[in-house]
Simulated assay, not measured.
Amino acid sequence: MASPASVNTGHLRASTADSSKVRRASEGLVDLDRDMTKMRRMSMVSPITSDSTTVRESMSDSPNISGKLASAGPMTNSSIDNSVIDSSVATDETVEPSKKEIEDWHLFHRPPKEIRSVRFAFNSATTSSMAPALMFQEVHRVLVVMQSRHSNQLQFSRVEDYYMLECSYTLSSDSPDAADGEFVKFEIEICKVWLLKVHGVRLKRLSGSALIFKELHSEFVGMLEL
């Protein structure tokens, strides 16, 4: 029969391991929240200057946001309710994007030379009447979230002439389902839906595991908000 001391030690180790997992998960959420805040800010700031006037002018383009600004009055630090900001969440100073980050973001989201009209399988979750630039921003947001979830196993890059992203995913060797060289490459593109006045998100597997692609496809479409 185990002694009380050994039982207590076992409970302590389990408790320490659980708290470590919770802490890592919390840190991951904070990093993701910081990334999402940066993306929102960079989408509102001019690639030339990042002063507050440009931000306000960019936000005023949206009737919903401009209405809230008018009713809320001037934006100051004192107008923020600090009671709802948890100490573990990044503050404005830590999430303020640098000029290089703003330039890189606008370079990544530069207008394409062409938006192709393509025949592909689509549904209501992958089509929208919103502007293609906003659809591309949403695709980028979802991929950043997925990249965080999958510990950077997912990588993507912009194809220059189109609203297209080339993506690759390699299954971690630590995963119990991993096999040697198990990966998938696929592309995501904002296209005109043939014969319809809407745009859609087209996903196409280029090479690699069809099973992994199916799982990533389902996860991506489930997170997409068009």
Results as ranks from 00 to 15, higher is better:
76 T>Y: 00
161 D>H: 11
146 M>G: 02
221 V>G: 04
107 L>S: 14
59 M>S: 05
138 E>A: 10
182 E>L: 13
135 M>T: 08
170 T>V: 10
99 K>A: 12
4 P>E: 08
83 S>F: 01
21 K>E: 12
43 S>Y: 05
150 H>I: 02
55 V>P: 00
44 M>F: 06
142 V>G: 07
108 F>D: 02
23 R>Y: 14
203 L>Y: 01
83 S>L: 02
55 V>K: 04
33 D>I: 06
211 L>Q: 15
46 S>G: 05
141 R>D: 07
156 F>A: 05
32 L>G: 04
55 V>D: 01
216 L>D: 03
192 K>F: 03
67 G>H: 04
79 S>E: 00
128 S>Q: 03
122 F>C: 06
3 S>N: 09
103 E>C: 03
178 A>E: 11
159 V>I: 14
120 F>V: 02
182 E>A: 14
19 S>E: 14
26 S>M: 15
30 V>H: 08
42 M>W: 03
196 L>Q: 15
190 I>K: 00
60 S>T: 04
218 S>K: 13
87 S>Q: 10
186 F>K: 00
32 L>T: 15
123 N>W: 07
144 V>Q: 11
64 N>E: 08
117 S>Q: 13
129 S>R: 14
206 L>S: 11
25 A>R: 12
121 A>S: 12
200 G>R: 00
186 F>T: 00
121 A>K: 13
214 K>R: 12
32 L>A: 13
148 S>L: 01
36 M>I: 15
128 S>G: 08
12 L>R: 12
2 A>S: 09
24 R>N: 11
112 P>H: 11
89 V>M: 08
147 Q>M: 09
144 V>T: 15
171 L>H: 05
164 M>I: 01
226 L>E: 04
96 E>Y: 05
95 V>T: 13
10 G>A: 07
25 A>P: 00
73 G>A: 05
29 L>S: 13
80 I>M: 02
40 R>V: 06
13 R>T: 07
143 L>I: 07
199 H>Y: 15
190 I>A: 05
85 I>R: 08
191 C>A: 13
165 L>P: 03
134 L>M: 08
118 V>I: 14
106 H>M: 11
113 K>S: 12
126 T>R: 00
14 A>R: 11
175 S>H: 15
7 V>M: 10
143 L>D: 06
94 T>Y: 02
208 G>N: 11
112 P>L: 12
192 K>T: 10
116 R>Q: 13
54 T>C: 04
117 S>W: 02
102 I>F: 01
62 S>G: 04
16 T>H: 06
143 L>W: 08
187 E>F: 04
218 S>V: 09
9 T>Y: 06
213 F>Q: 03
170 T>F: 02
221 V>L: 09
208 G>E: 09
198 V>E: 13
199 H>G: 02
200 G>S: 06
1 M>D: 09
73 G>M: 04
133 A>C: 06
136 F>C: 03
118 V>M: 09
65 I>L: 10
64 N>V: 10
208 G>A: 12
66 S>E: 05
211 L>E: 15
33 D>H: 14
218 S>C: 03
84 V>F: 00
59 M>C: 06
116 R>K: 15
148 S>F: 07
19 S>M: 14
109 H>K: 10
52 S>T: 06
